[in-house]
Design a protein around this nucleic acid. Structure first.
Length: 263
DNA sequence: GATGACCTGTGA
DNA sequence: TCACAGGTCATC
């Protein structure tokens, strides 16, 4: 469930149901899923006997603080990739993924912990593009999209000649915006995704900033990244002006936009 | 920067 | 069978 809204739902689920429960064992059937040197043995050593103390998030990276009798433990980092979901005691957060399977096939459980109380938390990820790591480096990510200021947006957009869509999706610049949210925000702001980032006027930047904030708020309320107003369908009328929406590749991703009002 | 690679499931 | 999928990472 990638993109910041779904990741935030997953974080909230962990915060609501996963904290304070002693970990009895770890479940690491897919060692390929463990990244940055993490091993099943290291995961067990880091987690068993400890509890999750807090669930934080930066962009699409979930950070779970741990604590034990001896004080703070390591930080667990969870990436959900394109198709990952967090499941706790059988509950999962967020809306169903549109293009991914939502069935709970046991083989898709890539990582998990069992609690002493008998419950469990695990990550289900059919495509295996997610990742689990310890002590993730948060500083490789820019400020979280929910905290995006106009000042920061001006700074990152004016310093790149890449397509504006590429800049917005660059997690080192702004953390959390993905393919759907960016297309929706650019459609709201009336800016062509392929336009050079440094060609945005001060007014464009301000409009884009408002559009990003509005898109995050609105789609979060509606329940997911795919609930935008712009249909992700080629050659259907733009809800704003009736021009036929176009589909193309920008910044390496499938991109929908209105050739009429996005300039 | 754009491109391909990573991996697997779904739906036409 | 093929194209496609809400993400990242290495490589030219």
């Amino acid at each position: 469930m990638p993109e910041i809204l779904e990741v935030e739902d997953a974080r909230a689920l962990i915060a609501a149901e996963g904290l304070g429960r002693e970990i009895a064992s770890t479940f690491t059937p897919d060692t390929w899923y463990l990244k940055r040197g993490l091993t099943p043995r290291a995961a067990r050593s880091a987690l068993v006997g400890r509890r999750f103390a807090a669930a934080r998030r930066r962009g699409k990276l979930i950070l779970v603080d741990t604590e034990g009798a001896d004080g703070p433990g390591p930080v667990l980092g969870l990436h959900l990739g394109m198709s990952g979901r967090v499941v706790i005691d059988g509950d999962e957060a967020g809306d169903p993924l549109i293009y991914a399977s939502n069935r709970d096939v046991p083989e898709w459980r890539r990582f998990g912990v069992r609690f002493v109380d008998g419950g469990a938390l695990y990550v289900r990820d059919p495509r295996r593009l997610g990742a689990v790591e310890l002590e993730p480096d948060e500083d490789r990510l820019g400020p979280d999209a929910f905290e995006l200021t106009l000042r920061h947006l001006r700074s990152v957009t004016s310093r790149s000649n890449a397509p504006i869509k590429a800049v917005l999706m660059n997690q080192a610049r702004i953390a959390g915006l993905g393919n759907l949210l960016v297309d929706e925000a650019l459609w709201q702001a009336g800016i062509d995704p392929a336009r050079r980032s440094d060609s945005l006027s001060a007014e464009d930047q301000a409009r884009l900033h408002r559009a990003i904030r509005k898109t995050l708020r609105t789609l979060q309320r509606r329940g997911g990244s795919h609930t935008g107003d712009m249909p992700r369908v080629a050659a259907v009328p733009c809800p704003r002006d009736g021009a036929l929406l176009q589909r193309r590749t920008v910044a390496g991703r499938t991109t929908f936009s209105c050739p009429q009002h996005q300039t």
